[in-house]
Design a protein around this nucleic acid. Structure first.
Lengths: 232, 232
DNA sequence: CTAGACTCTTGATAAATATCAAGTCATAAC
DNA sequence: GTTATGACTTGATATTTATCAAGAGTCTAG
């Protein structure tokens, strides 16, 4: 069976150290699927039948309550999502939809749990992955509770700026409606927040961001390793 | 060595299935300590030298940024806290302080990581614990992003009411200043939020809450398994 | 018992954020 | 080309939440 995508994930930290037979058992029942944009992959509340791994594209994790919807995160290759639900055999807490044409691997949750019980290296890798995810959500919670919306935007821009290698001009990776939801504000207020950041050397043209005064922006945003550094 | 507290945690899900020798290795360097109220146990940013287990008392997890402080959670016996930092060998993301006189077990992080690498059952237990914690934070994030402060309070009361067995009258387990921070609002607005909930059959007298109309309160609060049920 | 500290509440006001209603601009459809 | 459609912005306004100031009540140290 030639499944290059499956071989590709073998090198992910989550799968790199596991035994060959475990990897084989894990991927035997796997699907690789291509989805067009705006397809709902997962609906919150449903049982977690598959662990998802995004190989190509862009996926939004979102949640709903009482007719309100918010974006929780966007996921880019190569990463897994909804690992905790798979492990706990619980319902999904978030829904997921493709934002772009995306290629996704689906591993049956049952297989993930079985292999997890029989391959210590895999269990260890899952621990590290989950700990990372956990710390990510804690940081995002701190961001929400300790900062105003303009401060959240400023720090988001600084982070993106960093990921993209500190170029003078860079592109937003999400449309502004979703960015607003991700940052916990309305699209209208996102527009106004961008305007406010104009005072600190941020210029916006469509999805293009120009940062002319890193110093002022940092002074205002006060980025912190314990909130904004997703690698620590 | 007679250390009844250590034996006590042996039955916790996190330690129940591990080998005796692993448990022995894990607890050999453990401390059991009593702390008075309002002692800072952990400061965010410090290296995670110990995994903490609260045996008695009450501990607040909080975070700071730019001279603002917020309560992230309160922890009651018997639970661990700061597991993810221990595993990742990363800095603490939250600070911790005792709220009451508390008894705490400290397990050296190094031992936790060593045993975690050598005892598959322990690794599996950590996975389940971390998955649980992760889902807890995701729920709390949804709570913050999707609900207004009054809605958060209403759902908090319904949850506490449930934990305490649905008595007509029950006690808040945290002082109101901290409850406000936990729910992401100011103490002043917590007072006003309680008043608003008076319209839905909630009466407050100090720390004592009287719920006279469960139906109205539920109608207003719209509790959801995917946000408020911490066991799923 | 009393002074002081503390928690909590209340009222007045300010700031932050959301909503509603147009309007602009670009793109896609016909 | 013209007409929709959608994304974004802007202004006016409303709602939510925070801040500031003061007062009521409770607890505790002396």
């Amino acid at each position: 069976m030639a499944r290059p995508e499956i071989e590709e994930i073998r090198e992910l930290p989550l799968f790199a150290d596991m035994r060959d037979e475990s990897f084989e058992a894990l991927t035997r029942g796997a699907y690789v699927q291509n989805f067009p944009p705006l397809i709902e992959l997962i609906r919150e509340g449903d049982p977690a039948d598959f662990l998802h791994i995004i190989i190509e594209g862009n996926v939004e994790l979102f949640a709903e309550w009482n007719n309100r919807e918010t974006t929780m995160a966007t996921v880019r290759p190569i990463s897994t999502f909804i690992l905790a639900a798979t492990i706990k055999d619980g319902p999904y807490l978030m829904s997921a939809r493709t934002l772009e044409k995306s290629r996704i691997i689906l591993l049956p949750s049952l297989d993930v749990r079985t292999v997890f019980e029989n391959d210590a290296k895999f269990a260890q890798a899952i621990v590290l992955e989950l700990a990372q995810c956990y710390r990510g959500v804690v940081k995002s919670s701190k961001n929400l509770k300790l900062r105003t919306s303009v401060e959240r935007l400023a720090n988001y821009l600084i982070r993106q700026h960093g990921y993209q290698g500190h170029p003078e001009v860079f592109q937003l990776q999400v449309d502004k409606k979703r960015l607003a939801a991700l940052l916990g504000m309305t699209p209208e207020n996102l527009s106004r927040a961008f305007k406010t950041l104009g005072n600190y050397g941020v210029a916006v043209d469509g999805a293009q961001i120009h940062i002319s005064n890193t110093h002022d922006l940092h002074q205002f945003a006060k980025p912190s390793k314990l909130i904004d550094d997703y690698s620590c």
